[in-house]
Design a protein around this nucleic acid. Sequence first.
DNA 1: TATGCTGGTCGAAACGTTTTAGTCAAAAGC
DNA 2: GCTTTTGACTAAAACGTTTCGACCAGCATA
Lengths: 335, 335
Amino acid sequence: MSSVSIKEVAARAGVSPGTVSNVLNRPEKVAESTRSRVEKAIRDLGFVRHGSASSLRAGHSRTVGLSVIDIGNPFFTDVAAGVEEVASERGYAVILGNSSGDRLKEERNLLVFAEQRVRGVLITPAGGNLAKLDQLRERGINVVLVDHPAERADQCSVAVNDITGGSLAVSHLLAAGAGRIAYVTGPLTIRQCADRLTGAERALAAAGRDPGQALEEVAMSAMNARSGQQAAEKLIAEGRLPDAVFCANDLLALGMLRGLLHAGVRVPQDVLLIGYDDIDFASASAVSLTSIRQPTHRLGRVATELLLDECDNPESHAHQQVMFQPELIVRESTH
Amino acid sequence: MSSVSIKEVAARAGVSPGTVSNVLNRPEKVAESTRSRVEKAIRDLGFVRHGSASSLRAGHSRTVGLSVIDIGNPFFTDVAAGVEEVASERGYAVILGNSSGDRLKEERNLLVFAEQRVRGVLITPAGGNLAKLDQLRERGINVVLVDHPAERADQCSVAVNDITGGSLAVSHLLAAGAGRIAYVTGPLTIRQCADRLTGAERALAAAGRDPGQALEEVAMSAMNARSGQQAAEKLIAEGRLPDAVFCANDLLALGMLRGLLHAGVRVPQDVLLIGYDDIDFASASAVSLTSIRQPTHRLGRVATELLLDECDNPESHAHQQVMFQPELIVRESTH
DNA sequence: TATGCTGGTCGAAACGTTTTAGTCAAAAGC
DNA sequence: GCTTTTGACTAAAACGTTTCGACCAGCATA
């Protein structure tokens, strides 16, 4: 109820409001003695700066918006944790938006961000709203793309090379002796899924195989464990079990694993299995899962650092399109 | 850059700023013809209300703070998804804070929330900061406790009965023929862990067993899969494998499962296993996991509804301490 | 002694809304 | 036909900061 304002602090410390503001924002500008007097008044009165008033006058807030595709996916959760970490270190608050892959929902999130006059936006675009993002930029809100390489050079982005990832996975399967490989994926309209496929095909070509022969695509509509299990059942029912299965994410792979084991197919003896993302649960499954690790947490951290750098040093800031490299983590499922 | 204000909209529509504000906030108060004229001006100019200015003057923002203990835990993720859903429906933005179980970090989050003058706070307390929460309330910021029953009647809380949950788990194990049961848990200073133990003991007592005899506690410092596996290794090494294992959460249970299978112990033939939370991965593990389901998503939704009701209808609002009941989900691991 | 600096502080004008009291014309009540 | 009421709108005062020019004392320079 009783919100103490900067004026009351000023009165108690016997200075002007402007001086209190200086203590808050540029302590070095005010004399030691008055500073400590003001600080005491702040403590005594339990003063807390009014963020809205502050950002109204200052022209910018200390918040960033984060829009993710699926807060339930450990991949995004890890990213979010990294974002929150950096933002918190720098005194920024994170406004969370979950687009659920829905373009309209994502648009609503962006509107909320715009209303809050966030300092910047971190977004894994669900698709279709790239023009909206440019509008945000025109409004002076910086945008960093997360897990999505920027097409243009005038913006920052942070991503992981999915083509390399796909190659890593398939090369490993080939080295382990696989002949026919199934690629279990989500919709190929999802960039990540498509890129991983490209990588897989390149690895096959590099090994002298014909991708059209050696690789079978199994596209599911969702990318969760249920879909993975359905894919397993399908492969088994149709009697065309491959030597190895490459799943576009770990949730699919875990479902696949369960489906295979359930039908008495042994992993890795009968079928090799590799996932993608290396979520925590990948190592905890009954047959621990070989996977492609992405620096998820790092992704979130770097994206946020880039964003805040762009905010705090607008003229010295150089846009960067950071591309991380994925890493193969070998475990029981291909061993 | 070019932020259009309400004044410019007013000028273009040939009305006063106050009228534009009315169109925004109480459209029914303004005549049809002017309203549509103003709305057109808003669209033409791409006006977006300045949240800070709005909340400065109005005295309250349209944001809520959410402080969770571990954003990496699917339990909290599901809660957060529910929160985000309701908040978004009602036009509120969610400010996310991750306390990592750290009291200082939690305190920092609360400070950020206070600065942002959030309308309310949703928090799963990490411990020790309950006085700080009262301070928030004095400042007029409503607080709803999440997964933590309120001790006093003057506040809202949403929780799930962990005693019942513990009883459900152990009753089920007893019915399945278990004699000696191990309870693998995190620190018993965590309320949830302690309550689940209490429930377990009650179930034993109700079945005429002596809890001191039939139940062995194995307390680990962390509640993740790694700890679960360590617990399994410990039980096996010491040669005191029980008939059944009750884990205080699914992460522990998944680790336990892996540890047992790895050592050639069959689940459920040799040892029955039950977890807690029923996270998605529980059903996707190689031996699907019997677990205690909590209405996680619901928890988040109801907590947010309660909070926003308290904010929007301060006088008619009745504080509620909602207690949900957990549910036993039987799967292969006890079958 | 006059002049220019400098470090420290002050006062007041913003920032973009919301809200309250007030204006004014037209409709309604008697 | 006069007052009241109503409906639609306006003008201006807040809300709590930040920032900018002004100010002033003290000190060094000339």
